[in-house]
Design a protein around this nucleic acid. Sequence first.
DNA 1: TTGTAGGCGTTATCAT
DNA 2: ATGATAACGCCTACAA
Lengths: 375, 375
Amino acid sequence: MGKPRVTMQDIANKVGITKMTVSRYFNAPHNVAKATGDKIRQTVDFLGFVPSRVPAMLAQSSSKAIGAVIPSFSNMVFADVIRGIEEEAQTHDYTVLIMHSGYNMEAEERQIAELLSYQIDGIILTEPQHTDLTRRRLNAMNVPCAETMSLPAQPIDMAAGLDHREAMYRCTKTLLEQGRRQPIYIGVRMDIRTWQRQEGYEQAMREYGLTPFIMDSCERSTFTMAGSLMREALKSCPKLDAVLCTNDDVAVGTLLACQALKLRVPEDTAILGYNGLNIGSATVPQLCSIATPRVAMGRMAVRLLLERFNAQEPADASAAAPQPRRIKLPYCITGGQTVTAAELAALRADADLLRHELTPDPLLPEQLFEGIELL
Amino acid sequence: MGKPRVTMQDIANKVGITKMTVSRYFNAPHNVAKATGDKIRQTVDFLGFVPSRVPAMLAQSSSKAIGAVIPSFSNMVFADVIRGIEEEAQTHDYTVLIMHSGYNMEAEERQIAELLSYQIDGIILTEPQHTDLTRRRLNAMNVPCAETMSLPAQPIDMAAGLDHREAMYRCTKTLLEQGRRQPIYIGVRMDIRTWQRQEGYEQAMREYGLTPFIMDSCERSTFTMAGSLMREALKSCPKLDAVLCTNDDVAVGTLLACQALKLRVPEDTAILGYNGLNIGSATVPQLCSIATPRVAMGRMAVRLLLERFNAQEPADASAAAPQPRRIKLPYCITGGQTVTAAELAALRADADLLRHELTPDPLLPEQLFEGIELL
DNA sequence: TTGTAGGCGTTATCAT
DNA sequence: ATGATAACGCCTACAA
């Protein structure tokens, strides 16, 4: 190893005091004589010393850090979730350690173990399914856990997310009510949420006595691939008049393919995306999309953890109303030129309906659809 | 606080041994009797125990972790860099802690301090400029540092990246040589690299006796905004015949705006993106883009750190050839239908020229443009 | 205002 | 094959 790093002892030696005073300088500067403090600052600044947080983690078994595991950094959806998590955490002086699982439960298990080995105070998970070992570990290590994005039937601990099956079910049903006869579903990158959405689509189709038609590919979601899937779908199902997409990338790919094929959107074919990403607002016509409150979900997850951290402090068991911390969040409909005006109105009315059914939670951010351009 | 977490001592108590043997079970299982090991495994699995890495960080002052600071999670470019970093780090049993700076030097300073407080063994930076305090800190804490993406004139320590000024200079010059008379530059999100590219554009223009025309906005890069900038540019500079964009999002927005305005691409207007992201391959015509070896840069950064870690082990000062670890990487040209066939050929020939000028480094990944679809 | 002693959970080292 | 001891860097608690 190279030369050892600078420690508080080094600073103390230079200044001619004990490391305890240096420690105080960082944690309670007002308890240090001004002259001493100045000398310490000089030395610290000059040397560029940064106190290690590691001993504190050991001693207090609290790291002031929370972990988060997302499936992928290249999915924009999670960039917003991270933003919500980090902004909220920073406000409360917590550091966020982020890992990614590549949509794989075993990888998630490893990454969670990794995070636990850093003695994090809480953890945020964005996939709805976990290995048994993961559940046992979170329990054994006594780490509060907030699940977000989806709404697991049996959360490990706490959850704030939305019911993707229901969202797709309601939207499919609305399009059917509005007169579409052959909507199809395009999914790629078969993660759990894609599958939940597909279920919602299928349920609505069956309720209308229609046969679900599904195109998918296990490959990573790209515009080009979505285009190919759409072309294939048209061969097998030429009468299709609506395309429900698992995400906005797929929807944009589908839209571009329709335009290349001279299909009129929304007259011949309605297209509905999922997530409400900015990319949908760039197309002509602008994409209609089921928008999820991504930033808000990140915030909620952190707030649930903080609520728990604080609840653990006072040992009085009086207040602690053991609310069921499983919070269902609404979606909204963005854009809208890839469905007819009537369809857009119906989709929005239905989304509002759901929104008003939900019980408001005190932890909910004021601005639920932060970061989403409604248009 | 809640109940304390499970520790090795707890496992040891249950099994009826000392924690030392439990420690061995994790670090050198072959030194533990099979029967003992089995009992330990049972208890560990049952309790879901995960050893803390924190004490080891303290004791060995090596954490087997490297830090990385990126400007933003919502920029796809960095998703690929992260991929390269993580894949390479995982191969060598290092954990990666990722932070983001929001394109802000002071935020970067804070995030780096944060990482240093975790006793990371090395750090990767993706922005080319840093505060003085940051430099002093990295030096004091004796943390090897690899800068990537750009190629700083005076690296803190080591660097592997490309010269964005030169890349844009060469491409602008090539388009001018091919007959374009009024290329403009569109930048958004004024980070340092955007500015470097702009400099390259300006230099080429001036060498041809032309006046640079620059549009930019400090807002976050979005498709829609790029469209507005393009429309504005056309008002002030109606004769523009090429648009050099700071990134692919801007280029796609520009392309969509051109199409809405019935401008022929590439005949009336050539469009050149930057980064070579997948989005460019979805447009019709496919976007021509200056592609950077993002995944490879992530890998290189990790390899530079590992090289350093290993070099520090053997105290014999013999081998350690003090190579100047400042490695210049090439770019390549993807797609190509938004420039003419002749222009594409010229751009590619020039990129190849540069590539052959560069001295190959033994650390360079075999597949330099991993993750980039050349088309 | 500053100093001293002890401990957090693990591992290196040296026994047994 | 297993155990005992010390040490890592900082902070809490107490003392001066």
